[in-house]
Design a binder for these strands. Sequence first.
DNA 1: CTGAAAGCGCTAACAG
DNA 2: CTGTTAGCGCTTTCAG
Lengths: 340, 340
Amino acid sequence: MSKRKISIEDIARKAGVSHTTVSRALRDSPLISPKVREEIKQLAREMGYVPNGIAQSLQTQKTNTIGVVVTSIADPFFAEVVEGIEQIARSSGLSVLLSTSHRNVEQEIAAIDNFYRRRVDGILVADSRINTNHTQQIGQIATPTVFINSQTANQPESFHSVRIDDYLGARLAVQHLVSLGHTSIGYLGVGDRSLSNQLRQEGYQTVLSEANLPQIDDWIAIREEDNTRTSDVVTGQQMLPQLVKAGVTSVFCYNDMVAVGALLACKKLGISVPQDLSLVGFDGIALGGYITPPLTTIRQPMLEIGRVAMQMLLDLLQDKTVENRVLSPYLIERGSTARK
Amino acid sequence: MSKRKISIEDIARKAGVSHTTVSRALRDSPLISPKVREEIKQLAREMGYVPNGIAQSLQTQKTNTIGVVVTSIADPFFAEVVEGIEQIARSSGLSVLLSTSHRNVEQEIAAIDNFYRRRVDGILVADSRINTNHTQQIGQIATPTVFINSQTANQPESFHSVRIDDYLGARLAVQHLVSLGHTSIGYLGVGDRSLSNQLRQEGYQTVLSEANLPQIDDWIAIREEDNTRTSDVVTGQQMLPQLVKAGVTSVFCYNDMVAVGALLACKKLGISVPQDLSLVGFDGIALGGYITPPLTTIRQPMLEIGRVAMQMLLDLLQDKTVENRVLSPYLIERGSTARK
DNA sequence: CTGAAAGCGCTAACAG
DNA sequence: CTGTTAGCGCTTTCAG
């Protein structure tokens, strides 16, 4: 219970030197004689000195902090992305300020504004909804910023980003289904993640075209309302029946949570997966491997997405030129798909 | 792309007043005439002024930031706890600095030290390993700190904490099994979470005693190595067989992930749950409801744990006196347990 | 090698 | 109501 926090001045007084000398000694400046340097360091240790990072930041104009905005921490997808971010950040001496947007532009902007006031060195935004119109609102992004899987259609030129190739992922999923002999393939999507849903749907449709397979409107079900990813399960549960009624023998789901919901619905309806119906998810969250049957899915390397984004930000902070990255997802074949 | 960030001095110059006036006007001081106040605010807006939080913090000695240490963000349990923390923090104008400890005391202390340097207003630590010996190392905790489900046996008097009642939870789990007619009940635990594992094991044993049921050494399996919670699944998978071999008809698992592993092992061994073997988990993570059969478990109100801990910290920051909290878990009966 | 002085951007006495 | 002056705790010229 030390009453007042001690400063370099306190140490200086006790050591009979100037606070400048203490400052230098503590940071191993070559300007200080080894002898006094050690003395001062020892004294600082004894006195329980802890440098004031705020004062340092004010002076150096660096906070060694980055801000991260995700839609929700409880979302297993983003949890892992953040884990990847944190790993790289910490190994570079940066701390992470975390905020949530709940897929809401206002909250997203509020979070970024807050980061801006706190003078974070850089910002990472996942699933961003920001578009060119908002651009000016958010302090013209003087702070280096990297977007992860941005949902913005018309991204300003200046944006840095890393994203998964949604289109490719969808193709892999549907091609897998086609290769198993399925000819009536449905798509179960979500309306609140405009860009990625659109790209996945396009991938789906393209593969059907290429394979000369029928494209029926009723084979596509999009849940329009806004959801948190957790309730994606509910989306899957509610939307699956109509797809089954429309006669599909397989369904490509927007993501794993939707697929889980679809699977739950199947159990309830007495439809066995994969015998009666094949299901493919997207994301590759751990959960998918634990359910019965284990879920065939398109895996996004979540940890890597986080790491790559953070690394990109690090490069930006060192004024390196960076190139936007598009990572490739890949198929994980498990038990929820079978030959027709 | 504004080159240099503008300060209140810049505004003052342009407005022909002193920077003090600007400072006051911006913060709605009643000392400023309404007229100039509005003028200044307008000017600030036009100039795109964003107050420098660092400078404010240095002056006011408050950072409006709290530090949170969890073992892993990708752990669904902590992810939800953090979500709860963030909710309350944000609604109180506080930002969250997040760090991970990976169940490692050194990393935990490093994280806390870092928070200390950054002069966070308060600290939240989940699953802490810190004991009295470390107490002095971490800057004698001059910063208000609340521990969540601390794993420390001999907690210093001065610690503030919120924890789940592990002992009660274990009792509920085993009593449930007993009430279903089970007489040979096993416990599958983990060795790297000393306190909570110990309490759950005690609860288990007490109920067996009270019910005059046999207590066989081989019915208790504890995985000693350190794990991340994710690999708790592996623990369950590896340890279950020996319990089955020892002849149990039901198993109380340390947590849901362990139970998931146990379930996976059962599938592999051709043991059907719950017909041949009943399984009870602990935590109540979402995943448990999606697997087959859905997991009977002891639920910890994770979101609430986070909220309560954060609220306690808030109270501490306002110098209110707080009482340590012990929250009660409860049984969620689902499909993994059945009458013997 | 060391110290004096300035200043990072803001808030808060203390005068007028 | 407004301005002057310190000062939060540190780093960084600039002189010795």
